[in-house]
Amino acid sequence: MRKNKKILLLIGIVLILTIPLYIKNLYYLHVINLAGIYALVTIGLNILSGYTGQTSMGQAGFFAVGTYVSALAMMNFGVPFFLAAILSVIVSLIFGLIISVPSMKLSGPYLVLATVGFGEIIRLILLNWTPVTKGAAGLTGIPYPEIFGLQIKSEMQFFYLILVFVILGTYIATRITKSKIGRTLTAIREDEIAAEAMGVPVNKYKIAAFAISAMFAGIAGALFGSFSGVTSPDNFTFDESVAFLCMSVIGGNKTIIGGIFGAFVLTIISEGLRVFQGARLIIYGLILVLTVIYMPNGLVGIINDIRNKRKKVKAQ
């Protein structure tokens, strides 16, 4: 059984690595790259919402911080991409701490409103701090990443760069969720009062979850800026935060792999429904409601149910 899993894993890795070789259409590859960036945001959101039970609708704000910090560092100070990305993570972490501390006494819809407000505040700052952010015009000519003198600028090159970050992010997030921290976050989600009664510093772990989710959004933002080459406040609206939440729920927010599934599925659906862009929030709302009703554990939950049924059939 274990040998079969290793073979399937190897086949999966080979298929993923060869995606740019058999997908010749650059637009399709662009969508895949974009989904990979969004997957990083959703992985962080799953740690916050799925494992800790804290719903955030302000991830677009952290995403924006990461994008602008990285872009401005490279454009104005000539900072290399990887150093700019680290700076994005640090600044996003700080913003995560800033929003998490006053939000500790909030829960449910009040926490949601607080995070919505945070996202809108960030967007308005980007829109009105014209001398730095260029306002509504946004930033153009964001430099491409460089690795040992090689400039990453083609869709294929970005595919492998983003893939490395997604694999690394998945590994880190998985290690976190399987550690003592992850088990404690799950305990807080299941029963916060019981966890606190057992001596768990609940607020400390909630703050940590916010900070982790902000860091993931920050690194995703750094990738997004260099990948797109341009950015503006219009890229970080409330719609984007709703989209990230939908990705989390659709994939299965109680697993890390669910964040990746959800990001790819919803990004592809979104691109396919561009003609209905005006009704985007309505479509997302319907998808979210239907998922909660018919797939409470997301796509990963369905896969696990099928796997468990097959095991029961074999056992019989």
Rank of each mutant, 00 (worst) to 15 (best):
T267C: 14
S248D: 01
R274G: 10
V265E: 00
T255R: 09
G262V: 13
F238S: 06
F238Y: 06
G258K: 02
G251V: 04
I269V: 12
G259R: 11
F244I: 11
I268W: 08
I257E: 03
I250H: 09
F238E: 03
G259F: 09
T267Q: 13
I256Q: 01
Y284V: 09
E240C: 13
V249C: 10
I250E: 13
A243Q: 07
Y284N: 07
F276C: 03
E240P: 08
C246M: 09
A243P: 00
N253A: 07
T255P: 01
I260T: 07
G262L: 12
L266S: 03
I250V: 15
R280Y: 15
G262E: 10
T255I: 05
G272I: 00
L273W: 15
I257P: 00
F276Y: 15
T267H: 11
G272C: 00
Y284H: 06
I257G: 00
F264P: 07
T267A: 14
I268D: 09
A243F: 05
L286T: 10
L273Q: 13
F244Y: 10
L286V: 12
I283T: 04
M247N: 04
A279L: 11
M247A: 04
Q277T: 14
E240Y: 07
I269R: 11
L245P: 01
E271F: 07
L266E: 03
M247E: 03
I282D: 04
G262K: 10
K254P: 01
I257Y: 05
I260C: 06
E240F: 11
E271R: 14
G285M: 10
I257H: 00
F238W: 06
S270A: 12
S270I: 06
A243W: 02
F244A: 08
F238A: 13
N253S: 08
M247H: 04
T237R: 15
S248W: 01
G278C: 04
Q277H: 12
F276K: 02
A279E: 12
L245E: 01
R274F: 05
I268P: 09
L266H: 01
F276Q: 06
G252V: 01
A263F: 05
F276S: 06
M247T: 04
D239R: 15
I250Q: 11
F276G: 01
G259D: 03
C246H: 03
A263T: 08
G258Q: 02
L266V: 07
A243D: 03
A263Y: 08
L245T: 07
I283D: 05
G285T: 11
I250C: 14
Y284P: 12
Y284S: 14
N253P: 09
F264Q: 05
L286F: 14
S241A: 15
G285D: 13
S248M: 09
S270L: 11
F244S: 07
S248I: 02
G258P: 01
R280I: 11
G259K: 14
R274P: 00
T255H: 05
S270H: 09
V265R: 00
I283K: 02
F261G: 05
I282S: 02
N253Y: 10
R274D: 02
G272Y: 00
T255L: 05
G262C: 14
G259H: 10
C246A: 13
E271M: 02
E240L: 15
F244H: 09
K254I: 03
